[in-house]
Design a protein around this nucleic acid. Sequence first.
DNA 1: TTCCTTGCAAAACTTTTGCATTAAA
DNA 2: TTTAATGCAAAAGTTTTGCAAGGAA
Lengths: 143, 143
Amino acid sequence: MEPEALSTASAPGRCERRLSGCGIRPTAQRVRIASLLLSAPQHLSAEQILASLRASGARVSKATVYNTLKLFASHGLIRQLSVDGSRAWFDSNVDPHYHFHDLASGALIDVPVPEVEFSRLPPPPPGTEVAGIDLVIRVRKKQ
Amino acid sequence: MEPEALSTASAPGRCERRLSGCGIRPTAQRVRIASLLLSAPQHLSAEQILASLRASGARVSKATVYNTLKLFASHGLIRQLSVDGSRAWFDSNVDPHYHFHDLASGALIDVPVPEVEFSRLPPPPPGTEVAGIDLVIRVRKKQ
DNA sequence: TTCCTTGCAAAACTTTTGCATTAAA
DNA sequence: TTTAATGCAAAAGTTTTGCAAGGAA
């Protein structure tokens, strides 16, 4: 019986239920990955997740981390970002939103949808429809 | 003496001058890569460039293609795109513009700046300024 | 000569896959 | 017991690097 004194949105129990609700079997590794990633809006790489899990004593393999992230993304639990080409970033915020990308630190910062307004957008090519809009505002140190 | 009957913007002679103008020594391989890439607005991967060059009889190594693309990008001759995380795409159009990304075919289509208008953008984080805006409109087959 | 560039191969990284073992229902 | 998930290692794909050889100035 685990103490749930600090019952966050991603406490193991909640994560388990959330995975089950998606038809994903809530194995130990999956629940740990979900607890880590879904605890707050954040952007993590597969390697960061693996390192963090192992640092906290979990037994997880690299393959399981990658497979699990792909699985979560396919169920809409997380979102995979292509920001800098060096590696994939996994975003626990799946609500529509955009990003600042700090070129100096590599940091990603969420930009809520209402902070961006398009007064004009091109019509999609014939026979296609818009599936999503990715907006990355690159920022650098001033001066 | 090469016939320049079809004198395009990227005929070898022009490319040579353009490279020299950037302080880049116009070696045979660099001129061939520039001729290929700068002949028209397009999006190519390093592997596509290598294959195309070899198909046309050029002697080029993979390392030289990668090094040359990085060199060109650092001089603003081309632009490197992070669209799908699988590999880098090199865009010969360095004027500001955006992209459609066809999720079915992987194709990239340029969107001219005037076709997009922002009526609201968030202020960059304190101490930073906007260095650029990357907009990718993902499109899929209708219905 | 001197410096820069190239090619090749190997290395480095990220991500995927095959398969025997283990855990979940 | 039956099916699915995990770990490990190896493979695959992209990009970078070390270094000897070649080419330009």
